[in-house]
């Protein structure tokens, strides 16, 4: 056997070599990659410049009077005004979203994915939930004004100076706004649970509820959590619906403390409203105050986003066993 015999003559070998060795560079491939990097850098650059600008503008407020800025109600003077009521309103709105939207949204998603039969009614509901997620937030404001403010008018009676434009109405409105997104993301997370896992659980004699509780929900938890926390962050940043529901722009007495339940029946405002209001004030002395308020709102929202990421990673590690 002539094992050592060369397979081909030298000329063929040279030709194949030149075909194989293209130099490893493909123009279209490289251009596409750099175009992608370019867009990413551009997007990040815009964001960075914005955040940097706001932080620099607002910094004097944080260094000079962090305590009064956080604790004071809105005042007519820029060097005295604070964001206490805005934070309080945003806190209570967050409570509404967490307590109402999360359970209702996740339950609705479980029902749609696991229990509902596939018929025209289910399909119509599914399509409409998707549509609702795309409805402009102002429309939710009108909904809140007609339904929640209308219903709440008089419920709190003598407690309130309000005519139904209470924290409760604002919270309910933003809870409704966040609901479709929570349902959609939760349903998608549940749908992504591999069917082999369901079969394994049913196969050892689990009931539907046991399969959902012990296998589907734990597996879908990272996705559900991310979706819910992101929708919460979105709800906390909304201004338009709150303006329609009647959040107070301008002066609002401190009346109740941060965590007092009485606040639910009181007039309210929230961080996005406070920021809009500050930005509208004449005079350059309002600029740093506005920037500082923006930084605070950004921090609140980023905290939830970070929590979403951390919890997601933790659950995913747990999913690996």
């Amino acid at each position: 056997m002539a094992i050592a015999q060369p397979l081909l003559d030298k000329k063929t070998s040279e030709r194949v070599k030149s075909q194989l060795e293209t130099g490893g560079f493909n123009l279209a491939e490289g251009a596409f990659k750099w175009a992608l990097i370019g867009t990413l850098v551009f997007a990040l650059l815009v964001l960075t410049v914005l955040v940097y600008d706001v932080v620099v503008d607002g910094f004097p407020v944080f260094s000079d009077r962090l305590d009064t800025f956080m604790a004071n109600p809105s005042r007519t003077r820029a060097d005295e005004t604070g964001i206490f009521q805005g934070l309080r309103g945003t806190f209570w709105i967050g409570v509404f979203v967490i307590l109402l939207t999360f359970p209702i949204g996740i339950a609705a998603a479980i029902y749609l994915e696991e229990y509902a039969t596939d018929n025209w009614l289910t399909r119509t509901i599914n399509i409409n939930i998707r549509n609702l997620a795309g409805v402009p937030s102002v429309v939710y404001g009108i909904l809140g004004l007609t339904i929640f403010v209308g219903i709440l008018k008089g419920v709190y009676g003598d407690v309130a100076l309000s005519r139904g434009n209470t924290t409760t109405a604002g919270g309910l409105t933003l809870a409704a706004l966040a609901l479709p997104v929570v349902i959609i993301t939760s349903a998608e997370a549940i749908r992504a649970v591999p069917s082999s896992l369901r079969e394994a659980a049913y196969g050892v004699g689990a009931t539907k509820w046991e399969v959902i509780k012990s296998h589907i929900l734990p597996y879908a938890a990272p996705g559900i959590l991310t979706g819910t926390l992101l929708s919460l962050a979105r709800a906390l940043g909304e201004a338009a619906p709150l303006i329609l529901v009647g959040a107070v722009q301008g002066k609002l007495g401190p009346r109740t403390g941060f965590f007092e339940l009485q606040q639910l029946g009181e007039k309210f405002t929230a961080m996005p409203i406070v920021i809009t209001d500050m930005a509208k004030q004449p005079g350059s002395e309002w600029q740093p105050v506005t920037a500082a308020a923006i930084v605070v709102l950004l921090l609140v929202v980023l905290t939830f986003n970070a929590a979403a990421v951390i919890l997601r990673n933790r659950f995913e590690r747990k999913r690996q066993g």
Partner: peptide
Amino acid sequence: RRIGMVFQKPNPFP
């Protein structure tokens, strides 16, 4: 519970 099943792809719980 009385008629157990083993599937095509191993599918242990995580």
